[in-house]
Amino acid sequence: MQYAPTRGTARHTLTVIAFAALSLTATACGPAAPAGPAADDTPTTAASPSTTTSDTPTTSPTETPTTSTPAPQTPKPTKEPAAKPTVTDEPSEPKVQPVVVVLRPGDAGAKVRSMQARLKQIGWFSGDVTNFYGTRTTTAISGFQRKRGFPVTGIADQRTYDRLLSMTRTPTQDELNNVKPQSAPAAKPGSWDVDQRCLTGRVICISKSTRSLTWVIDGKAQYSFDVRFGSEAEPTREGTFSITWKKVDVISNLYGTAMPYSMFFSGGQAIHYSADFAANGYNGSSHGCVNVRNMTLLKQLYNTAPVGTKVVVHW
């Protein structure tokens, strides 16, 4: 069956065609559109460089990341250990200092005579001095060494000889030639500086005014000899004392000087032989002791007056 449009339908069709033509005309006569991309070319924002937000680096598919394990290392010591000393079976021998001999038995000459005179000054040598180093000299040196704790050899080595020099003075010509000093004549009553304290018993009476020492027994003077005293800064004490102790070989622990045949009567003050007094007389002074320069009479007094003997020091 054919469809035959009616009049009304034909009219409607014409209307639609006319509207379509009008629509095309309006579209063609409007303002020209700017040249631009095709309708399907939608403008896009230029692609920014891709930013990887992950901190993990991209790994090539052909490379398999591996974790290398470091090989263990032995730490080096900060300090090399000290080398151990070599121990031997035999101990090392100590070095022995050679002994220097100054004089020995059998030697002869002026040096031997001088050494004998020095030994005689401090009571180690008796009799006349000679030029020969014999038995008497050997005995004297042995005793001198023993007293000081030195090896007792009887040989005058350097150590022994130096100590002897430090304790004595240079011998006088009289000492080297065995010239004996003249003994003082026995004091007569009235000729010595009498002090009432010296008239009873056995007394060592010492006068500062006459610078003399007198050995007195029951008021009678036996003999006298010269003495000297301490200075104003170190005076010899005055008064009545007694001998507290005696010693032949004494070295001052304050001044390092020899004090042969010491008889102590007041603390450290003593009656003793003085090499300086013998050499220089009254040009010097003691440190408070009573110095004697006549060795012969001093030895006699030393052997006569025992500990406890009365001592009087007066003006």
Score class of each variant (00 low, 15 high):
G239P: 04
T244F: 00
M259N: 08
F277M: 04
A117H: 05
A71Y: 01
V194D: 03
G230D: 10
P94H: 05
G36L: 04
L165Y: 08
T53L: 15
T27Y: 13
T153R: 07
R7L: 13
P72F: 10
T27S: 13
S231I: 06
Y255Q: 07
L298Y: 07
R237N: 11
Y302G: 07
L254N: 09
G308T: 01
A275I: 00
V227E: 04
M115G: 03
K79F: 08
T210A: 12
A275N: 10
V96A: 10
G201K: 06
P94D: 08
D40K: 04
G127R: 04
W192D: 02
K220R: 13
I141C: 07
I17C: 10
D193H: 05
Q121T: 06
P235N: 06
F264D: 03
Q116V: 05
P151S: 11
D174C: 01
K111E: 15
R163S: 10
Q121G: 04
G190F: 00
P151G: 08
R293T: 00
T200S: 14
N291H: 13
T62W: 10
Q196D: 13
P43V: 04
S114M: 13
D55P: 15
A32H: 07
N280Q: 12
V87W: 08
L22K: 04
K247C: 01
R113L: 09
V250N: 08
W315T: 11
T130A: 09
S266K: 09
G149N: 11
V152P: 03
L24P: 00
V99R: 10
V292H: 03
K208C: 03
R11I: 14
C29P: 00
V99A: 05
V312S: 01
E90L: 11
R146S: 15
S262F: 01
T15V: 14
A140T: 08
R104E: 14
M263A: 12
R228L: 12
A82I: 05
K120M: 06
L103F: 01
T138D: 05
